[in-house]
Amino acid sequence: MFQASKVAIVGLAFGAFLAPAFAAPAQEAVDRTFERIAAGVSRAGLEPVVDIDHARLAAEAGVEMPPSRVQLFSDAAVNSALLAQDLSTGLDLPFRALTYAGADAVQVSYTSADFLKRRYGLDDTEALAAFDAALAPALDGLDGVEPVPVPTEGLADGYGILTLQSAHDVPETVARLRAIVNAQSDTVWFGEVDFTAEAAALGVDLPPAVLLLFGGPAPGGVAMAKFPSIGVDAFCQKLFVHAAPEGGSVVLFNSIVALAELHYGTSAPPHAMLDERLTATFAKALE
Protein backbone atom coordinates (compact mmCIF):
# COMPACT_ATOMS: atom_id res chain seq x y z
CA MET A 1 0.00 0.00 0.00
CA PHE A 2 2.87 2.36 0.77
CA GLN A 3 5.21 3.03 -2.12
CA ALA A 4 7.79 5.37 -0.62
CA SER A 5 10.77 6.31 -2.72
CA LYS A 6 14.30 6.03 -1.35
CA VAL A 7 14.83 9.71 -2.12
CA ALA A 8 12.31 10.48 0.59
CA ILE A 9 15.05 10.25 3.20
CA VAL A 10 17.86 11.70 1.13
CA GLY A 11 18.17 14.62 3.50
CA LEU A 12 19.20 12.25 6.27
CA ALA A 13 22.42 11.46 4.45
CA PHE A 14 23.71 14.98 4.88
CA GLY A 15 24.00 15.15 8.67
CA ALA A 16 27.06 17.41 8.55
CA PHE A 17 25.63 19.72 5.89
CA LEU A 18 23.67 22.30 7.86
CA ALA A 19 22.27 25.61 6.67
CA PRO A 20 24.92 28.06 7.94
CA ALA A 21 22.44 30.42 9.60
CA PHE A 22 21.59 27.77 12.21
CA ALA A 23 23.97 26.34 14.79
CA ALA A 24 24.61 22.63 15.02
CA PRO A 25 22.97 22.37 18.49
CA ALA A 26 19.62 23.49 17.02
CA GLN A 27 19.81 20.80 14.35
CA GLU A 28 20.91 18.22 16.89
CA ALA A 29 17.97 19.09 19.15
CA VAL A 30 15.54 18.72 16.26
CA ASP A 31 17.12 15.41 15.26
CA ARG A 32 16.90 14.12 18.84
CA THR A 33 13.20 14.91 19.19
CA PHE A 34 12.50 13.55 15.71
CA GLU A 35 14.11 10.23 16.65
CA ARG A 36 12.07 10.04 19.86
CA ILE A 37 8.89 10.40 17.83
CA ALA A 38 10.11 7.72 15.42
CA ALA A 39 10.69 5.44 18.41
CA GLY A 40 7.18 6.22 19.67
CA VAL A 41 5.74 5.35 16.27
CA SER A 42 7.47 1.99 16.46
CA ARG A 43 6.32 1.31 20.04
CA ALA A 44 2.73 2.18 19.11
CA GLY A 45 2.78 -0.31 16.25
CA LEU A 46 2.14 2.37 13.64
CA GLU A 47 3.44 2.02 10.09
CA PRO A 48 6.15 4.49 9.01
CA VAL A 49 5.36 5.99 5.60
CA VAL A 50 8.04 8.59 4.87
CA ASP A 51 10.55 10.84 6.67
CA ILE A 52 11.55 14.18 5.12
CA ASP A 53 14.41 16.39 6.30
CA HIS A 54 13.31 19.82 5.08
CA ALA A 55 16.35 21.84 6.10
CA ARG A 56 19.02 19.48 4.78
CA LEU A 57 17.21 19.01 1.48
CA ALA A 58 16.78 22.79 1.18
CA ALA A 59 20.45 23.34 2.05
CA GLU A 60 21.46 20.93 -0.70
CA ALA A 61 19.42 23.12 -3.07
CA GLY A 62 21.15 26.27 -1.78
CA VAL A 63 18.31 27.57 0.42
CA GLU A 64 18.58 28.34 4.14
CA MET A 65 15.73 27.61 6.53
CA PRO A 66 15.35 26.56 10.19
CA PRO A 67 16.07 22.91 11.05
CA SER A 68 12.87 21.02 10.33
CA ARG A 69 11.87 17.40 9.79
CA VAL A 70 8.48 15.82 9.21
CA GLN A 71 7.44 12.20 9.46
CA LEU A 72 4.29 10.53 8.16
CA PHE A 73 3.05 7.30 9.72
CA SER A 74 -0.14 5.33 9.47
CA ASP A 75 -2.84 3.17 11.00
CA ALA A 76 -4.84 1.47 8.25
CA ALA A 77 -7.95 0.96 10.38
CA VAL A 78 -8.03 4.62 11.44
CA ASN A 79 -7.55 5.79 7.86
CA SER A 80 -10.25 3.50 6.49
CA ALA A 81 -12.86 4.56 9.06
CA LEU A 82 -12.38 8.24 8.26
CA LEU A 83 -12.26 7.72 4.49
CA ALA A 84 -15.48 5.71 4.65
CA GLN A 85 -17.12 8.75 6.21
CA ASP A 86 -15.64 11.29 3.76
CA LEU A 87 -13.16 10.41 1.01
CA SER A 88 -11.78 13.96 1.04
CA THR A 89 -10.14 13.34 4.41
CA GLY A 90 -7.41 11.48 2.52
CA LEU A 91 -5.75 14.86 1.96
CA ASP A 92 -5.01 14.98 5.70
CA LEU A 93 -4.14 11.34 6.21
CA PRO A 94 -2.09 9.54 7.40
CA PHE A 95 -0.69 10.89 10.69
CA ARG A 96 2.10 13.43 10.48
CA ALA A 97 4.31 15.16 13.01
CA LEU A 98 6.63 18.09 12.34
CA THR A 99 9.72 18.73 14.47
CA TYR A 100 11.37 22.11 13.95
CA ALA A 101 13.54 24.76 15.58
CA GLY A 102 11.29 27.46 17.02
CA ALA A 103 12.46 30.86 18.23
CA ASP A 104 13.64 29.53 21.60
CA ALA A 105 13.28 25.76 21.56
CA VAL A 106 12.34 22.69 19.57
CA GLN A 107 8.66 22.53 18.71
CA VAL A 108 6.45 19.67 17.53
CA SER A 109 3.29 20.23 15.52
CA TYR A 110 0.76 17.61 14.49
CA THR A 111 -2.67 17.27 12.91
CA SER A 112 -5.40 16.46 15.43
CA ALA A 113 -8.83 14.89 15.13
CA ASP A 114 -10.31 18.31 15.88
CA PHE A 115 -8.58 19.65 12.76
CA LEU A 116 -10.16 16.89 10.67
CA LYS A 117 -13.56 17.46 12.26
CA ARG A 118 -13.54 21.16 11.41
CA ARG A 119 -11.97 20.97 7.96
CA TYR A 120 -14.28 18.21 6.71
CA GLY A 121 -17.38 18.68 8.85
CA LEU A 122 -17.04 15.19 10.32
CA ASP A 123 -19.47 13.94 12.95
CA ASP A 124 -18.29 10.35 13.53
CA THR A 125 -17.07 10.80 17.09
CA GLU A 126 -15.88 7.20 17.35
CA ALA A 127 -13.60 7.46 14.29
CA LEU A 128 -12.25 10.83 15.43
CA ALA A 129 -11.54 9.54 18.95
CA ALA A 130 -9.75 6.53 17.45
CA PHE A 131 -7.54 8.91 15.44
CA ASP A 132 -6.34 10.79 18.52
CA ALA A 133 -6.04 7.59 20.58
CA ALA A 134 -3.79 5.94 17.97
CA LEU A 135 -1.65 9.06 17.56
CA ALA A 136 -1.10 9.89 21.22
CA PRO A 137 1.49 7.18 22.08
CA ALA A 138 3.75 8.28 19.21
CA LEU A 139 3.98 11.79 20.69
CA ASP A 140 4.49 10.73 24.29
CA GLY A 141 7.74 11.06 26.27
CA LEU A 142 9.47 13.84 24.33
CA ASP A 143 11.45 15.12 27.34
CA GLY A 144 10.23 18.66 27.80
CA VAL A 145 8.85 19.19 24.30
CA GLU A 146 5.07 19.57 24.36
CA PRO A 147 3.46 18.69 21.01
CA VAL A 148 1.04 21.36 19.77
CA PRO A 149 -1.81 20.61 17.38
CA VAL A 150 -2.12 22.56 14.13
CA PRO A 151 -4.24 25.69 14.81
CA THR A 152 -7.95 25.36 14.23
CA GLU A 153 -9.10 28.92 14.93
CA GLY A 154 -10.89 30.14 11.83
CA LEU A 155 -10.85 26.66 10.32
CA ALA A 156 -14.04 25.80 8.46
CA ASP A 157 -15.34 23.04 6.19
CA GLY A 158 -13.15 22.96 3.08
CA TYR A 159 -10.69 25.58 4.34
CA GLY A 160 -7.60 25.93 2.13
CA ILE A 161 -8.45 22.95 -0.10
CA LEU A 162 -7.84 23.54 -3.80
CA THR A 163 -9.80 21.27 -6.15
CA LEU A 164 -9.39 20.23 -9.77
CA GLN A 165 -11.66 17.94 -11.76
CA SER A 166 -10.17 15.26 -14.01
CA ALA A 167 -12.02 13.55 -16.84
CA HIS A 168 -9.67 10.58 -16.41
CA ASP A 169 -10.08 7.69 -13.98
CA VAL A 170 -7.89 7.53 -10.89
CA PRO A 171 -5.05 5.37 -12.32
CA GLU A 172 -4.71 7.60 -15.40
CA THR A 173 -4.96 10.79 -13.34
CA VAL A 174 -2.30 9.51 -10.94
CA ALA A 175 -0.02 8.58 -13.84
CA ARG A 176 -0.39 12.00 -15.44
CA LEU A 177 0.26 13.85 -12.17
CA ARG A 178 3.25 11.66 -11.33
CA ALA A 179 4.74 12.28 -14.77
CA ILE A 180 4.39 16.05 -14.65
CA VAL A 181 5.73 16.27 -11.09
CA ASN A 182 8.78 14.18 -12.01
CA ALA A 183 9.36 16.38 -15.05
CA GLN A 184 10.00 19.41 -12.79
CA SER A 185 13.74 19.98 -12.39
CA ASP A 186 13.43 21.23 -8.79
CA THR A 187 11.08 18.56 -7.46
CA VAL A 188 11.64 15.35 -5.50
CA TRP A 189 9.20 12.44 -5.52
CA PHE A 190 8.59 11.01 -2.03
CA GLY A 191 6.09 8.25 -2.74
CA GLU A 192 2.40 7.45 -2.64
CA VAL A 193 -0.24 5.76 -0.48
CA ASP A 194 -2.99 3.63 -2.01
CA PHE A 195 -5.75 3.99 0.56
CA THR A 196 -8.08 1.68 -1.37
CA ALA A 197 -5.62 -1.21 -1.27
CA GLU A 198 -4.94 -0.49 2.41
CA ALA A 199 -8.67 -0.67 3.20
CA ALA A 200 -9.18 -3.80 1.08
CA ALA A 201 -6.61 -5.62 3.21
CA LEU A 202 -8.95 -4.97 6.16
CA GLY A 203 -12.04 -6.04 4.27
CA VAL A 204 -13.25 -2.45 3.79
CA ASP A 205 -14.51 -1.43 0.34
CA LEU A 206 -13.50 2.10 -0.71
CA PRO A 207 -13.62 3.82 -4.09
CA PRO A 208 -10.20 4.37 -5.71
CA ALA A 209 -8.22 6.85 -3.59
CA VAL A 210 -4.47 7.55 -3.80
CA LEU A 211 -2.25 10.08 -2.01
CA LEU A 212 0.80 11.38 -3.88
CA LEU A 213 3.74 12.86 -1.96
CA PHE A 214 6.40 15.12 -3.44
CA GLY A 215 8.26 18.33 -2.69
CA GLY A 216 10.42 21.11 -4.08
CA PRO A 217 13.43 21.62 -1.76
CA ALA A 218 14.28 25.09 -3.09
CA PRO A 219 10.78 26.62 -3.34
CA GLY A 220 9.67 24.69 -0.25
CA GLY A 221 12.63 26.00 1.75
CA VAL A 222 11.87 29.57 0.69
CA ALA A 223 8.19 29.14 1.64
CA MET A 224 9.11 27.73 5.07
CA ALA A 225 12.03 30.05 5.90
CA LYS A 226 9.96 32.41 8.07
CA PHE A 227 6.95 30.12 8.34
CA PRO A 228 8.45 26.81 9.52
CA SER A 229 5.35 25.33 11.13
CA ILE A 230 3.57 25.06 7.76
CA GLY A 231 6.00 22.20 7.09
CA VAL A 232 3.48 19.85 8.68
CA ASP A 233 1.55 20.21 5.40
CA ALA A 234 3.89 22.05 3.00
CA PHE A 235 7.24 21.19 1.34
CA CYS A 236 5.98 17.63 1.36
CA GLN A 237 3.15 18.65 -0.96
CA LYS A 238 0.23 16.25 -1.01
CA LEU A 239 -1.96 15.50 -3.99
CA PHE A 240 -5.00 13.42 -3.14
CA VAL A 241 -6.85 11.76 -6.03
CA HIS A 242 -10.15 9.97 -5.59
CA ALA A 243 -12.91 8.72 -7.84
CA ALA A 244 -15.73 11.16 -8.57
CA PRO A 245 -19.30 9.78 -8.22
CA GLU A 246 -20.21 11.08 -11.68
CA GLY A 247 -17.10 9.58 -13.29
CA GLY A 248 -13.54 10.78 -13.65
CA SER A 249 -11.56 11.91 -10.65
CA VAL A 250 -11.23 14.69 -8.10
CA VAL A 251 -7.78 16.11 -7.28
CA LEU A 252 -7.30 17.86 -3.95
CA PHE A 253 -4.27 19.77 -2.68
CA ASN A 254 -3.44 22.40 -0.08
CA SER A 255 -3.24 26.13 -0.63
CA ILE A 256 0.11 27.28 0.79
CA VAL A 257 -1.33 30.77 1.28
CA ALA A 258 -4.19 29.38 3.37
CA LEU A 259 -1.82 27.23 5.45
CA ALA A 260 0.43 30.21 6.20
CA GLU A 261 -2.56 32.32 7.22
CA LEU A 262 -3.90 29.53 9.43
CA HIS A 263 -0.57 29.13 11.22
CA TYR A 264 0.66 32.74 11.28
CA GLY A 265 -2.24 35.02 10.39
CA THR A 266 -0.39 36.20 7.28
CA SER A 267 1.34 34.90 4.17
CA ALA A 268 4.18 35.94 1.87
CA PRO A 269 4.55 36.37 -1.91
CA PRO A 270 6.35 33.00 -2.34
CA HIS A 271 3.27 31.25 -0.98
CA ALA A 272 0.99 32.77 -3.62
CA MET A 273 3.56 31.99 -6.31
CA LEU A 274 3.62 28.35 -5.24
CA ASP A 275 -0.17 28.13 -5.29
CA GLU A 276 -0.24 29.53 -8.83
CA ARG A 277 2.55 27.26 -10.04
CA LEU A 278 1.06 24.10 -8.54
CA THR A 279 -2.44 24.81 -9.83
CA ALA A 280 -1.18 25.52 -13.36
CA THR A 281 1.06 22.45 -13.36
CA PHE A 282 -1.63 20.06 -12.16
CA ALA A 283 -4.25 21.51 -14.51
CA LYS A 284 -1.90 21.00 -17.45
CA ALA A 285 -1.43 17.34 -16.49
CA LEU A 286 -5.18 16.78 -16.53
CA GLU A 287 -5.82 18.23 -19.99
Rank of each mutant, 00 (worst) to 15 (best):
A26M: 13
F22E: 07
I37S: 04
A13F: 14
R56K: 14
F14L: 12
L72A: 13
S74L: 14
P66K: 01
P66L: 07
V30G: 01
R43Y: 03
A58M: 05
L12K: 13
A13S: 12
P25W: 05
D31M: 08
L72H: 12
M65Y: 04
A38R: 11
A61Q: 09
A16R: 04
D53I: 00
H54W: 02
F34P: 03
L46H: 05
V50A: 12
G11T: 01
A61E: 14
S42R: 14
G40V: 09
R69L: 13
D75K: 04
G62F: 14
G40H: 05
L12I: 05
E60F: 10
Q71V: 14
A24S: 12
V30Y: 04
S68M: 10
S74H: 13
V63F: 03
G45L: 02
R56E: 07
I37K: 03
A21I: 01
A61H: 07
R56H: 10
A19L: 02
V63Q: 09
R32W: 06
V30P: 00
A16L: 03
F14R: 12
A55P: 03
A55C: 07
P25M: 04
A59S: 09
D75F: 02
G62M: 13
A13Y: 12
E47W: 00
I37C: 09
E35K: 10
L57F: 12
F73V: 06
L12S: 15
P20Y: 10
L57H: 12
V41Q: 09
T33I: 14
H54D: 12
R36G: 00
A16Y: 01
F34R: 04
R69I: 13
P48G: 07
E28K: 11
A76V: 07
P66W: 08
H54M: 07
A16N: 08
T33Q: 03
V63Y: 03
R32T: 15
F14K: 10
A61D: 14
D31E: 14
